[in-house]
Amino acid sequence: MSAAPGIPRFSKICLLIGFFFLYAPMVVLIVYSFNDSDRVNIWGGFSNRWYGELFRDEAMMSALWMSLRLAFASATASVVLGMLAALVLTRVRNFRSKTLFGGMVTAPLVMPDVIIGLSLLLLFVGMANTFGWPAQRGFLTIWIAHVTFCMAFVTVVLSSRLRELDKSLEEAAMDLGASRLGTFFYITLPIIAPALASGWLLAFTLSLDDLVIASFVAGPSSTTLPMVVFSSVRLGLSPQINALAALLILAVSAAAMLAYLLTLRDERRRHEQA
């Protein structure tokens, strides 16, 4: 690692150990997903048969499909709401309940999942009893729950980007005759697009990853991928899960790489601007 002279050796060692600790388990997992043996911990030669079995597992596949749709819908909605919330935090002059608003926006960042899950379920049950809606829990209720907590993360990402945005760009657009809405769509939105994309990806992975909240608010007939994985993992190790895990890790790495390149490009562009 070619580190700058300013880094103390102690920090360098910590970095190395830290990265080893973070990545070794995942590497092991990926290696063992190609293990031919039925027994997870004994190496029985190279094979990709678990990948085949994984794709033939219908329960798993339908849960995956559900999770992907859910993640897509949640990410999209939470980017829209998160964008609005970030605008409120950064562009709207102080109004009386702005502190309350700020609190509501950031609290889901740290709120334990079990509390969010339980409280939303009780809300849905209460609503169903009072208004008859939602009659059934499933995709819609999980979506609402996911949007609620993903939105907090998106808001933080976007509001820090908006705060960095040179305000005079927006003022210049207004000065040239654009309305507020026009300024937002022609100037603000295109410039913060990379942050919007990485916020969307973040929300997507958060939703794809959630087990606890979904377990509370899902109905009996709706199952997400983490719920299937959890019930299988609870019973012990299974080679099929290894294969799934390896695929997830690769997919997420690819997405993260993409997000990284996007931010890098954005940063470079901003650098050149300055």
Partner: peptide, 17 residues
């Protein structure tokens, strides 16, 4: 990056270790 990969998968990795 690790925090973007599935949280369950990472716990599962440690179970194997």
């Amino acid at each position: 990056l690790p925090s973007w990969t599935s949280f369950l998968v990472r716990i599962y990795a440690w179970m194997g270790l």
